[in-house]
Amino acid sequence: MVPIEPTIVNKIILAILNGVVWALIIALVALGLTLIFGLMDIVNIAHGDFYMLGAVLAWYGVALFNNFWLGAVMAMIFTAILGAVVERSIIRPVEGLPAFTVVVTIGLSYIIQQSVLATFGGSPQTVPEPIRLTIEFLGIRYPAYRLFVAGVSGLALIALGVFLFKTPYGLWIRASMQDKEIASAMGINVSNVYIMTFSLGAMLSALGGALAAPITQVFYLMGLDVLAISFIIVIIGGLGSLKGTLIAAFIISLLENFITLVATPTEARVISLLIMGAVLLIRPKGLFST
């Protein structure tokens, strides 16, 4: 047996914990993205900005009411409404024209970013952790808030699963994903399903952002990095595949956390990119495409 330095073991345990927490947060964002794409063929560029809005509103919750949870709930409600309005007003006219939906969401992304820049400001802010407790186990100290985030994200994912697979709304969404015309012929109001799904996707992204706010820095361009990693995840998992997205979120998140033990975050991202390239060459439609 080669003796291993305890610090390395500690670092590995930390990497695993951080990887899992981050995977659960990013899964919320990426699932929203893949849900919107799977149903409407929309590559939503503004998705990262919904995430950013979540974090910004959580910051406002703390700044104005000294209540993080209120901020998080506010963020979810606000983005859900925003999502519905956006779908109805600016996405509906260009539906079915994939390139144009991208352009519209880029435009939306600019408007959201500039609005936040004008009100929230351009310098990064921090949100204090709402649970200031560290738990000691396996020789490391770990903030309880992060474990709590993992729990909330996990519950949200289970709730999403129940919603999609056990309720009539979920049934409508899945039916419309399979075949819009037949779903419509069966009496499903596909128009409402679109609005609901876009709104749901935006809300999931904002929840991810709000939960991540105390862990990262709140900045008006923070959505870009999350957009990049979410896209890598949905490409590896297979566009539109919920199961694939969930699994890929864990693979990439854990991997990047492990690699950052020995390299910079940028180098970790480059390796994720290379893995994505390899997946594209071997299984062009993603690991879990059907």
Partner: peptide, 22 residues
């Protein structure tokens, strides 16, 4: 190019964001 459509859009974005980071 091989995949086209939405994959093309997403892959070009990923390249761009990663090159910027690098």
């Amino acid at each position: 190019v091989r995949l086209g459509g939405a994959y093309f859009v997403i892959i070009t974005i990923i390249f761009n964001l990663t090159f910027y980071l690098i």
